[in-house]
């Protein structure tokens, strides 16, 4: 029980959030570069220490004679300058090797081979991620937030943008960082080998809640991914009981609809996350809270306590209104 609590309290499970636990070919290239650089620099460090210790041991300085009398020693001078020249040469060669390795792994990370990728648009907002699966037909476009579903063994092309400030998309076990610049669209790609949930984090300081701007990548077999896609394409399910009907009324008559979309209702603002299938997501508030009734209610009533400065405004609803609203949101599978 305590262990389970600990795991739940740490959404960023280190096993799935680590440069040295790659789950994708690109992260593998980055890890390879990391280790090769590590071992080269480790060897340099050891050699330096050995040379330093040798020099210290050879020194003729004794306490009585702090300043030894220098004599002209042409042979010794020549040897010393050879030593310095070869050390400089080795240093330059080492740096050049690291540079070449870095360029090689950069090429490997960038190069896209497949012609049949899945395309995702990721837009950074303060402080959440808008995820869109663009399609030439508007009604085939999926919009969700903070939880990216991708098929395994398929290249995923990511188009990036931001609406306010610079954010940076970083899933350490998948690939390198990529900045999302406001008003500037760029693209990169990744591919995941192993099914699983991988966490990521904004890696460019973007304001008060930068630390609570996480996301997750759910990598799943292609059939599960397609099933997810089909589910996400549907408009919100109609409320099935009186409580949920009332919850929908609360949603549509309070501040919620000024910022959020629920497809199939009148709420269509694009300023906050799309809530059409909010109950299908594992976490809310950009990976800050688990998606439970309690956290939903807490987040709706007093978001500024959970993420001070967030754009979500506090909603002092009457208790039974809140109850109905949470029941409605939880029905949006």
């Amino acid at each position: 029980m305590p262990l389970r609590f600990l795991v739940q309290a740490m959404p960023l499970d280190p096993g799935h959030h680590h440069v040295l636990h790659p789950a994708a070919p690109q992260a593998g290239h980055i890890e390879w570069l990391y280790w090769i650089t590590f071992w080269i620099l480790f060897a340099v460090f050891v050699l330096m220490i050995v040379a330093f210790a040798g020099a210290a041991a050879k020194s003729g300085v004794v306490a009585d004679h702090p300043l030894p009398i220098l004599e002209k020693d042409e042979e010794g001078d020549r040897r010393a300058s050879w030593g310095v020249a070869s050390a400089v040469g080795i240093t330059v060669i080492t740096l050049f090797v690291i540079l070449v390795l870095s360029v090689v792994s950069g090429k490997r990370v960038e190069g896209l081979t497949s012609k049949n990728p899945v395309t995702i648009q990721i837009t950074g907002h303060q402080w959440w991620w808008e995820i869109t699966y663009p399609n030439s037909q508007a009604d085939q476009t999926i919009t969700t937030a903070n939880e990216i579903h991708v098929p395994i063994d398929t290249p995923v092309v990511v188009l990036t943008n931001s609406t306010d400030v610079i954010h940076s998309f970083w899933a350490p076990s998948i690939t390198g960082k990529r900045d999302l610049l406001p008003g500037y669209s760029s693209a990169f790609w990744f591919e995941i080998d192993k099914a699983g949930i991988y966490h990521g984090q904004c890696a460019e300081f973007c304001g008060l809640q930068h630390a609570h701007m996480g996301f997750s990548i759910v990598a799943e077999p292609i059939d599960e991914f397609q099933a997810w896609q089909q589910q996400q394409l549907k408009p919100a399910s109609a409320p099935s009981n009186a409580e949920a009907v009332r919850g929908r009324e609360v949603f549509l008559t309070h501040a919620c609809l000024m910022c959020h979309t629920i497809r199939g209702t009148d709420a269509g603002s694009r300023f906050g996350p799309d809530l059409t299938h909010v109950a299908s997501r594992n976490m809310i508030a950009a990976e800050t809270l688990p998606n439970t009734a309690g956290s939903l209610a807490g987040w709706i009533v007093d978001p500024q306590r959970i993420k001070p400065g967030t754009e979500m405004s506090p909603n002092p609803l009457a208790p039974d209104d809140l109850q109905s609203l949470v029941i409605y949101l939880q029905s949006l599978q």
Binding site: H254, M258, S313, N315
Partner: peptide, 8 residues
């Protein structure tokens, strides 16, 4: 009224 919070 009732659409946006008062402080906004």
């Amino acid at each position: 009224r009732n659409r946006i919070p008062e402080y906004q």
